[in-house]
């Protein structure tokens, strides 16, 4: 395909909305929208390929054919029915842009890009997914270690068959004491919030932690991985069910606001007292 790139105009989008199907749009309109669709499709495909190049090759016959039909992929994914009501996503695109008339076209294109991203994700999942070939022992997720499927869903094995509950509690307390100095303030805030059921994007939490929610999520995930990594190393022979049981008890110990030395800050922040006191009750 060697068609030149063209940017879209408000008229292109309005025409498409009125006539409903790109196939009956005037040629210049169809050309502009097809071009937009192809560019966005390739953008996401190349982004994926740049990180997983062994799974999809941009430029082979199969992907070129799909590139031709990128707009069709976009529309098929976004609509929930063939009638006008089923294509209400168009109204969503334009209503979104109505709030920012100075950048109307850019906002419509950004909304369409979001929808195209979802369409490309579905396309990649259908055409290139190898999830069923993944090993149970392959570590998933971000961070230094990640977790295997077996760790995330261990075989059902009651911990008391492996170790008495009181020994688990003792081990958890000892491990919590060892790991506490490794937690910085952001880690501690993230752990406490998760245990208290407060979402990390709560504006009070963000103000308290003086950072964004992404950093708080990473802090929480890093802390959990650190705990699990230590357990994996120390108790490698005990199995995943034991590891999970000990990890959960250790995290519960570490999430106690007194242990984290956050009590005074929490008091002054105005989080629901009931939630905080309930937490104290449960940890008593």
């Amino acid at each position: 395909m060697n068609q030149p790139d063209t940017s879209t105009s408000e008229q292109d989008w309005r025409t498409w909305e009125q006539v409903c199907a790109i196939d009956v749009c005037p040629e210049p309109v169809a050309h502009a929208l097809h071009g937009f669709g192809r560019r966005r499709f390739l953008h996401y495909l190349q982004r994926y390929a740049s990180r997983c190049g062994h799974r999809v090759r941009i430029g082979d016959a199969f992907t070129r054919q799909d590139e031709q039909h990128a707009w069709h992929l976009f529309e098929t994914h976004a609509q929930v029915g063939r009638d006008r009501a089923g294509k209400a996503y168009k109204k969503w695109l334009f209503a979104r842009a109505a709030a920012d008339p100075a950048r109307w076209v850019a906002v419509v294109e950004s909304g369409a890009s979001l929808l195209m991203r979802d369409a490309v994700r579905s396309y990649l999942r259908r055409e290139h997914s190898a999830a069923f070939m993944e090993s149970l022992q392959q570590q998933r997720g971000s961070g230094e270690t990640g977790f295997t499927l077996e760790e995330l869903l261990p075989d059902a094995q009651a911990p008391h068959e492996v170790l008495e509950e009181r020994e688990l509690t003792y081990l958890a307390e000892r491990l919590a004491g060892e790991l506490l100095p490794e937690l910085d303030r952001t880690d501690r805030i993230a752990l406490w919030c998760r245990s208290a059921g407060i979402i990390l994007s709560d504006p009070r939490v963000l103000s308290w932690a003086e950072c964004g929610k992404s950093k708080l999520h990473r802090a929480y995930e890093r802390s959990v991985e650190r705990i699990c990594h230590r357990i994996r190393k120390t108790y490698a022979e005990e199995g995943d069910a034991f590891g999970l049981a000990l990890a959960r008890r250790t995290i519960a110990k570490l999430s106690d606001e007194k242990m984290l030395e956050l009590s005074a800050e929490i008091e002054g922040l105005g989080f629901s007292i009931s939630k905080r006191e309930l937490n104290e009750e449960e940890n008593r």
């Binding site: 953008h43 996401y44 982004r47 994926y48 990180r51 997983c52 979104r96 842009a97 709030a99 920012d100 950048r103 850019a106 906002v107 294109e109 950004s110 890009s113 979001l114 991203r117 490309v120 994700r121 990649l124 999942r125 997914s129």
Partner: peptide
Amino acid sequence: LDGLLDEGEQQIPHPA
């Protein structure tokens, strides 16, 4: 997959 495709969205203008 969603995470991989999500990065780079900062380049696309979003409504203020």
